[in-house]
Amino acid sequence: MKTEKADVPTPTTFEPRITAFVCNWCTYAGADLAGTSRLQYAPNLRIIKLPCTGRIDPLFVLKAFENGADAVLVSGCHPGDCHYTSGNYHARRRWTLFRKLLALTGIGDDRLFFSWVSAAEGQKFADLVNDVTAKVRKAGPFQAAHPGRKA
């Protein structure tokens, strides 16, 4: 089989590692739809599926950065669509404050992304991943000197 050399990243090109925390009912199904629809998107995402965005403890995000993520994406059901009625509303309040705290301590909005993607939005998911990957690629590797990074 012929391999396309241009697709193989050389060690000098930076390929961001992005951790995504997604909910089981909307965004994960959206990602699945993107896959079954054969939509191609950036391979930089590592998806971690959870029952609900309400289950995503802010510590998960810190852990991801600690262990080498260049960016984190959190995604769940649109407001009003939560499988558990209000999990995403609870999560939204938490993230509104948490992102400000992280921004103040050196993790800006070019590292931490939030979105609503429903089970029907395969195209939105693919576009989102491409867009986030492009942004993080531009931002470069997460600073090794950040206090939240494992030495």
Binding site: P79, G80, S86, Y89, H90, R92, R93, R94, T96, L97, R99, D109, F113, F114, S115, W116, L128
Partner: peptide, 15 residues
């Protein structure tokens, strides 16, 4: 504040 919610909470940062 954390532990309650409102449907009107701002989410302009959500994509």
């Amino acid at each position: 504040v954390i532990g309650s919610w409102s449907a009107e909470d701002d989410h302009s940062y959500m994509r």
